[in-house]
Design a protein around this nucleic acid. Structure first.
Lengths: 108, 108
DNA sequence: ATAACATATGAACATTTATTCATATTTTCA
DNA sequence: TGAAAATATGAATAAATGTTCATATGTTAT
């Protein structure tokens, strides 16, 4: 049957791009937490140090630090040292695009 | 200080859109699993019944059914009955856009 | 050098999540 | 009607995840 055939073609396509799709899921995972989303949206407005984020999200400095590590490992933020503090900012324009894309789905 | 001031402005903005940002994180959560991503990408190509998906992803029918429920609750897929089988398809164009957006980040 | 400050890290704990197994539900067809 | 087929559901289990607490690391200024 033709349907059977096209299904198996799709199966092959999915299997071929298996690693990419795993990576895609991993990317979404980084966005899939309210704390991290809020950090990212905040960084959309301005670069910020850990203390600032901790204060305005009302969560422990430690929790922020842990989440920033997830974001950095995921390639969504970068950091630079400025004296005693460490300043975080969005890694690139893609991050903004991803957020906008999700926002559009929400506020359709 | 001006920086202090702008931080508190961002804090207020984040607090105002608190529910939206929670919803945004929840939306990403639905995408944040390899099985679900593969189901979605497959449905990008063609509508499909549970058995087909189960077969070509090599996972239990039950697992597929559970994940389809997550996708449906999240508003990403819809279903219709066709005889004994139930056919699933993408809920709307936004889903495709979200996937493309993530893909672009991966394969930059 | 040392005290004070900012951030990072590791272990522990509670919560969430994905899968499997067994079974229920719904529809078709003989 | 009753058996077979397709899907859904609930309980159980294992794995992953987010936060907190305590502490380590690294930087500045005295």
């Amino acid at each position: 049957m033709d349907n059977k055939n096209s299904i198996s073609k799709i199966k092959e396509a999915i299997e071929r791009s298996n690693e990419v799709l795993d990576a895609l899921a991993d990317l979404y995972k980084v966005f899939a937490d309210a704390t991290r989303v809020k950090i990212l949206v905040a960084l959309t407005q301005s670069e910020m140090c850990v203390g600032d984020i901790s204060e305005f999200l009302d969560i422990t400095q430690s929790a922020v630090s842990h989440q920033l590590r997830v974001l950095k490992t995921g390639g969504l933020v970068k950091s630079r040292r400025d004296g005693k503090t460490i300043v975080y900012s969005l890694a690139d324009a893609h991050v903004r695009t991803m957020i906008d894309c999700g926002m559009q789905h929400i506020t359709e």
